[in-house]
Amino acid sequence: MLGPVDYLLLLTELVLEVFAVVFLLKQKALSQYFTIVLYLCASIAVGIGRYSVLKSAGFTSDSYLYFYYFSDALLTICLYFVLMTLYAHVFSEMNVGKFVRGGAMLLLAGTILISYYTIASSSDKLITKFVNELSQNLYFVGVVLTYLLWGAMMKLRETRTRLMQLVLSMGVYFSAFAGSYALGNMYPNLRVWHYVCHLMVVWLPISWAYTFMKVPEDARIATAKVVAPTQ
């Protein structure tokens, strides 16, 4: 059963996401960071969808469990698109946009195929341990991709503060989710990770809104200041 804290967190998530979308549109970031707005809109739709399934079918129903994990996979795929946009921004001067888009399509197709194959061959275990493992793997691929992007940014001595903060906030999000899903797989009855997931969902809209609100597009910081010790 969901308690008042869960409902409060659900509402907070929704309000923050709506605020972040409005703020991004106000900052005219739609053309440059379309996938971020797309992800936030998808997340709002998923939040409303989850609430309506929860109300109609109940928290312990199979429908809610299916909807929850499939919508989670959908949101993760949207986050891959956000990552690809960030890759495109980082490599914009190298004219490799076509390769990035191609890579993104291949990655998406691969993820869908692997997910479909695993679902088809493990349908009897779908709402038990398998779904958790699938989400854990999807988030872990996100961690690896973000880590590679961050590594490339350090190598290229990227100085755009906004881009840096967007990539790092994605890294925090993916790592926290991959870790919490892995812990959930190891200790399925550990309740604390349920709240960690809620808190981490709030992290992305807040950090994105902060970055677009406080960091101007032309702000620059040296990579060394972020990575190396100050002494």
Partner: peptide, 16 residues
């Protein structure tokens, strides 16, 4: 996965 994610979480958060 948990150990790697925890370490990357620390690194990303510190850098952020």
């Amino acid at each position: 996965i948990f150990v790697i994610s925890f370490l990357t979480l620390l690194q990303f958060f510190v850098s952020y």
